[in-house]
Structures are given as structure tokens and as C-alpha cells.
Computed example of a mutant assay.
Amino acid sequence: MKIKEIIVVEGRDDTAAIKRAVHADTIETNGSAVGDQVIEKIKLAQQTRGVIIFTDPDFPGEKIRKTVAESVPGCKHAFLEKKDARPRKGGRGLGVEHASNEAIREALAAVKEEMIEVPSEIHKEDLLHFGLLGGTMAKRRRERLGSLLKIGYANGKQLQKRLHMFQISKAAFEQAIHEVIREEKDDA
């Protein structure tokens, strides 16, 4: 699998994992304090080949994703599920570097493009109605919803923004949340 866009990752272990799974070039942020020089490289990459942001599914990774996306509009996003980012043999932390080749390929095949101009069909009332904000099941439901829609986990405050940013239709949202609820009933 060859990737045209340049993939933004956190560090050299992530680059090694990406190159193991696909043919691609990367830019490393070297941590969550993304410097001006790195942003300038990413801007150039966006102009010439396009950019896919592929960071770890944790707080620092989300911080990097947000910083880059705000500085370089129009990036694409690839999301890795937490279960796929855990070390295989009892290690610590979450990271792209721990993901299997298949999980990396799947995340890159499901890349999402940012869209900002179109009004969202999904409102806060919808999130409340389906128990995605507050309550004991909200976090688990958001995790599963993010997995099904391939948009990664988002906290209650960020979920609506992410649904809008990736132009998830109301029909796709409702289909996914009904699947989440159906799974909960099957597990009960």
C-alpha cells in the first residue's frame, strides 16, 4: 500500500511502524510541543502532497492533532483505536509504534477529511438523547461510536465538533449509535 500524502507522527518509533506497514513518508513532531519549524514543514507538505495526521490515541496525541489541524487547515486524519495501540507484551503506554501492520493499514484506509464549511445535522440534543453526554455509559458509548465511525475517541465536549468536522451524516450517526445500543443490550 503506497500513501501519497505525508503522514504526521509523533516520533521515530511511529515512523518505523508506518514504514513497516505501508510505503509512506513521515514528518515527526517529536512530542506535543510542536515547534514552528515542524509546522512550516507540515504546511509545505500540505501544499505539495497533502497531509494525514496519525497520532497516538491518548491526550498528548490529541493535543498534537489539534495543534497541527489548527495551524494547517485541510489535513486528513487517521485514527487508531486504543485496543490496537497497546503494547503486545505487557509494556506501558499507547502508541502507533505498538500497532500491527494490519491495524495501521486499516486506519489509513479509513482516513477522514476535515470539512468545516457545512452546518452539522447533529445537535447537542441528539448527543444527550442517545446518552453520549453525562451518565454512567456516556464514555463507553463515545468510545464505541468513535470506533464504528472511524473518527477516534472524543470526550463529551469534543464529540459534536468531531462529528461536524468529518461531516458525519445524521443517518450514519444514528445507524452507529443504534449499533452501540444494540451491542449493550446483547452484552446485558
Rank of each mutant, 00 (worst) to 15 (best):
G134I: 01
P60T: 05
V96F: 07
D58V: 05
R12G: 13
A45S: 05
Q175T: 12
K19S: 04
D14Y: 09
G131S: 15
E62N: 07
F173V: 04
L163G: 03
Q160N: 06
A103N: 02
I6M: 03
E10G: 07
E106I: 10
G135M: 07
V8R: 05
I104R: 14
T55A: 06
T67I: 11
T136V: 15
R141I: 08
S120I: 00
P57D: 00
C75W: 11
I6F: 00
R88Y: 04
I177V: 13
V180E: 10
V38W: 00
H164W: 13
A110W: 05
L132Q: 12
C75Q: 05
V34S: 11
T29G: 01
D126R: 00
R86Q: 08
L44T: 10
R182F: 11
I181H: 11
F166R: 02
A16Y: 14
G90H: 12
E143S: 03
M1K: 14
N101S: 14
D187A: 13
E184W: 07
A110E: 01
I52N: 02
F54C: 07
R105A: 06
R141Q: 09
E70Q: 09
I177T: 09
R92V: 03
I39W: 12
E5D: 04
V72N: 02
T29V: 01
I116H: 15
K41P: 11
D36E: 08
E143Y: 13
V51C: 01
G156I: 00
A171E: 10
R88P: 00
P87H: 08
K43Y: 04
G135W: 15
D187W: 13
F54K: 04
Q158W: 11
E28C: 10
L149A: 03
A103E: 08
I53L: 01
L132I: 09
D187E: 14
V180S: 02
K170R: 08
V96H: 05
F59H: 13
G131Y: 14
A171I: 09
E117N: 13
T67C: 06
Y153R: 01
L159T: 06
K43D: 05
Q167R: 06
K89N: 07
K150Y: 04
V72F: 12
R140Y: 09
L159E: 09
R142F: 05
R142Q: 06
L163I: 00
V8W: 00
M137L: 15
G131D: 15
E174V: 10
E183F: 14
I7P: 01
P87L: 12
V111S: 02
K82T: 06
K170M: 09
Q37E: 14
Q160E: 07
R49P: 00
D126N: 10
K161D: 11
M1D: 15
A176Y: 13
K43S: 10
E40M: 11
V118E: 14
S100P: 07
T136C: 03
E143P: 14
A107F: 08
V34F: 02
K185M: 12
I177P: 10
T15G: 12
I7N: 01
A33K: 09
I18C: 01
L159M: 08
A188Y: 10
A103Y: 05
G61C: 09
P87S: 07
R142W: 08
M115F: 08
N101V: 15
A78E: 13
H123P: 12
A110D: 00
L133N: 01
I122D: 03
K19A: 05
Q160G: 10
P73L: 15
S32F: 07
S169A: 07
